[in-house]
Design a protein around this nucleic acid. Structure first.
Length: 824
RNA sequence: GCCGGGAUGGCGGAACUGGUAGACGCAAGGGACUUAAAAUCCCUCGAAAGCAAUUUCGUGCGGGUUCGACUCCCGCUCCCGGUACCA
């Protein structure tokens, strides 16, 4: 042993050294070379917002991704593992107001700082592809895309109700409205109608829904959340005439089969009919006011009492011509469907409760096919057979839906309709620190898209937000522009894009991050897309992941890549990691329960931090932070470090040929187990546990001959190699000590020698009535009869067979023998 | 309310396709080394009974299927996410 080898494990000394070597060797760079025939693998973690400091959630996210990327490289893949910065957003503006410096300065400073922190962790990113979304060379393509969408009619402008804060002079996002007041100045938020930009995601609702079926490697939970979010329901739109009026009352229903059971109508408080009726009815007006207030989201909304008032007008049933009263009800939402419903109390629980409360008629028109149902107890909401429905009597619900809808269509009183909950994507924000919307307002020409040759519309970076109106709107050199169509003086749009826009396509941009001629290079897309493994927090299950899926399809339809060659989904496999907790609650600055990754790295080194975060919990589950657990991870690395000193050593006595063979079996059993753990959803915690077992087995082994030394060496090599995607600096240093020819991180993954797994003799569990009663040593391919004979010969088992008749004997090969008996 | 997911020692968590429940780690207790401490190493560690060999019970609760159930089926309880009173 040289002196160097006997030194203690000192992470600080080795980590920097290896980071430099890796960088010099360029091991992290994804190869675009056409003659590179390696299979590609694209591993991506959700890129961070550059808040200035890495927190434990980041550390966990990026350690997971790095382990995946390194593992795949070791299997011979050409791995794309990029990183960038989701650099636009409100926190930069807030920091700017607080510090009196422009958001750009703050943002770029934070990026520099966080880049160093990521590098300190030894994450194997291809830095040559680094992007920051606040740079014109990035967002110019987003602007270009938007003008394409305008051409296709997929981007449009319309009035929309937004949350407005007067003192701040800005629109607020929903999450910035806390209990109805502005999060920053506590002023009650107003609803205001403003012209806003939208993208027609609803045109893609059906594809977004159907393609969810392709996402077999996504957590079911996320798929389910997206399915609910899209919220497809099939039914019919039915038109009711209003008595003594030319107006009609249109409703959407999923149960047209219950049409004949309609006994009243219910409209939302915001419905024109309700407003109209309230004009000379103060009591009703008051009720509508109350409803408007109630609609603000509260925890007790769910338990809210169902209330309503008659409007004093009637609707005419489209089939029977009967009059049904129109009510206003607090549970009908203006924002869904038509803001009105037909009420069938006999077959809808909510309508039933409402009818009971206000003494409205209940008319049963569906009867159960099996049991009797007493309609005076509760609504019958299932499908059944139609009764008391004139011409439709005797039809089954499913058939009746079609027949009745067809009848309505024929008589011009309704039609089949698919309703989605999904709304078009509101993409404009009245903020400064974002991508300028590439549009010009001209008095003569109206709204004009900025022509391609004038892109990008560069955001001036020197402006200083004050918390009031966006400084962009007051920046004359930005606002004043010539109309691209007529050349007259015109004004630029001063709204910027929602930052979800940038994060919706960055994964594709990474395939050709430096491409200057296109948003993405079609060839690069073909080579790398889609992302094979995407890793990030479950909080993005709906918005980001839905927008990204949508945007990917938009890029396809704009012709940016070959729809035949590139998947229509951007992320093949998704891993949603759990949160990092301290004392059972999420680590957060506001709670003051954070652990700074910097401190951990300084004290234990990056590898220990990595090992602990990977070992302490399965990736998708929450991880409880324990300092003692970190100690444990550190101890393990130290034990392995010391273990290396035993390489080449022989000891007196103990380990004979049999023990050597047994060790070799253990080594290969663990290679198999670790590999399996990696392949099964990246169960790093299980993989590490298995490596710890291997380490323990090696630690207990003392070679006494050349054979023993060789097998021990084999075991240590396998252990270090398998550790390398998880603790790369440590493994590299160990690899160097062991004289590996290539850096450990690039070495090929160990292969299982199945012949080493074969045993001459195994211990077979013997059960009586399914309960373990003993073990016998037998050949692995022992016959049932021989095993049974051996079991009978075993004293501790035989005593359970005394006075018993053998009913059945079951042998599970290599595992157990179960003997079923009964008293003789 | 509805839709997902989950419940295994003091704790985090293992357990291939139904086949030895509790791997691995943490904590705890005991011991070795040390003047002492730290570090390190060794032993014990689901519950109950027993000097012991050993036995019984045990994977949220109640049933079921099976030679055999943490695993499959039916019915509950509780916890955690998501959400839309969605017609």
């Amino acid at each position: 042993m040289s002196e160097q080898q006997q030194q203690a494990y000192n992470p600080q000394a080795i980590e920097e050294k290896w980071q430099e070597r890796w960088q010099a060797a360029g091991i992290d760079v994804a190869s675009d070379a056409e003659d590179d025939t390696r299979e590609t693998y694209y591993c991506l973690e959700m890129f961070p917002y550059p808040s200035g400091n890495l927190h434990m959630g980041h550390v966990r996210n990026y350690c997971l991704g790095d382990a995946v990327a390194r593992y795949k490289r070791m299997h011979g893949f050409n791995v794309l593992h990029p990183i960038g910065w989701d650099a636009f957003g409100l926190p930069a503006e807030n920091a700017a107001i607080k510090h009196g410096r422009p958001p750009a300065e703050w943002t770029y400073g934070n990026i520099a700082q966080m880049r160093e922190q990521l590098k300190r962790l030894g994450l194997s990113y291809d830095w040559s592809r680094e992007i920051a979304t606040c740079k014109p060379e990035y967002y110019r393509w987003e602007q270009w895309m938007f003008t394409k969408l305008m051409e296709k009619g997929l981007a449009y402008r319309k009035e929309a109700e937004v949350n407005w804060c007067d003192p701040c002079h800005t629109v607020l996002a929903n999450e910035q409205v806390v209990d109805g007041v502005c999060w920053r100045c506590d002023t009650p938020v107003k609803k205001k109608n403003l012209a806003q930009w939208f993208i027609r995601i609803t045109d893609y609702a059906e594809e977004l829904l159907n393609d969810l079926d392709k996402l077999s490697e996504w957590p079911e939970k996320v798929v389910g959340m997206q399915r609910n979010w899209i919220g497809k329901s099939a039914g019919a739109e039915v038109s009711f005439k209003v008595q003594d009026s030319d107006e009609t009352l249109d409703i959407f229903t999923t149960r047209p089969d219950t049409l004949m059971g309609v006994t009243y109508m219910a409209v939302a408080a915001g419905h024109p009919l309700a407003k109209q009726a309230a004009e000379n009815n103060p009591e009703l007006a008051e009720f509508l006011e109350a409803c408007a207030v109630m609609s603000t989201k509260e925890a007790d909304v769910a338990t809210m009492e169902k209330k309503g008032m008659a409007l004093g007008i009637n609707a005419i049933h489209p089939v029977s011509g009967e009059l049904v009263p129109v009510w206003v009800a607090n549970f009908v939402l203006m924002s869904y469907g038509t803001g009105a419903v037909m009420s069938v109390p006999a077959h809808d629980e909510r309508d039933y409760d409402f009818a009971k409360k206000y003494g409205l008629n209940i008319k049963q028109v569906i009867k159960s096919e099996s049991a009797d149902w007493d309609i005076s107890d509760a609504a019958f909401t299932e499908a059944g057979i139609l009764v008391d429905s004139d011409a439709f009597d005797g039809l089954a619900s499913v058939k009746a839906k079609k027949v009745i809808t067809a009848w309505l269509a024929e008589h011009d009183k309704g039609e089949e309709r698919i309703q989605y909950r999904l709304r078009d994507w509101l993409v404009s924000r009245q903020r400064y620190w974002g991508t300028p919307i590439p549009v010009i307002h001209c008095q003569d020409c109206g709204i004009v898209a900025v022509p391609e040759e004038q892109l990008p519309v560069v955001l001036p970076e020197h402006l200083q937000p004050t918390g009031g109106v966006s400084p962009l709107a007051e920046c004359q050199e930005f606002v004043n522009v010539d109309c691209p169509t007529c050349g007259k003086a015109a004004k630029r749009e001063t709204d910027t894009f929602d930052t979800f826009m940038e994060s919706s396509w960055y994964m594709n941009r990474f395939t050709s991050a430096r491409c200057e001629t296109d948003m993405v290079d079609a060839k690069a897309m073909q080579k790398w897309a889609p992302v094979d493994q995407y890793i990030g927090g479950v909080e993005h299950a709906v918005l980001h992941l839905l927008y990204a899926r949508f945007y990917h399809k938009l890029m396809r339809d704009v012709g940016l890549f070959d729809a035949e060659q590139v998947s229509s989904e951007p992320f093949k496999s998704l891993l949603t990691q759990g949160m990092v907790l301290l004392d059972g609650t999420k680590m957060s600055k506001s709670k003051g329960n954070t652990v700074d990754p910097k401190d951990i790295i300084e004290k234990y080194g990056a590898d220990t931090a990595r090992l602990f975060t990977l070992f302490a919990a399965p990736p998708e589950r929450d991880l409880e932070w324990h300092d003692s657990g970190v100690e444990g991870a550190s101890r393990f690395l130290n034990r392995v470090w010391v273990l290396l000193e035993k390489v080449g050593q022989t000891y007196q006595g103990s380990a004979d040929a049999k023990a050597t063979k047994a060790l070799r079996r253990v080594i290969h059993a663990h290679i198999q187990k670790v590999t399996h753990a990696f392949e099964q959803g990246f169960a790093f915690n299980v993989a590490i546990a298995s490596m710890m077992e291997l380490s323990n087995a090696l630690g207990a082994f003392e070679a006494c001959d050349a054979q023993g030394v060789a097998v021990f060496d084999e075991g240590v090599n396998a252990l270090i190699t398998m550790l390398s995607p998880l603790v790369p600096h440590f493994a590299s240093e160990c690899g160097e000590r062991l004289g590996f020819e290539t850096v450990a991180v690039m070495s090929a993954w160990p292969k299982v020698d199945t012949s080493a797994l074969v045993q001459d003799e195994i211990s077979l569990v013997v059960q009586i009535q399914g309960k373990k009663r003993g073990e016998i040593l037998v050949s692995p391919d022992v016959s049932q009869d021989d095993a049974f004979a051996a079991a009978q010969a075993d004293e501790s088992i035989a005593k359970w067979l005394e006075g018993m008749a053998i009913v059945k004997v079951i042998l599970v090969k290599g595992r157990l023998l179960n003997i079923v008996v009964r008293p003789a």
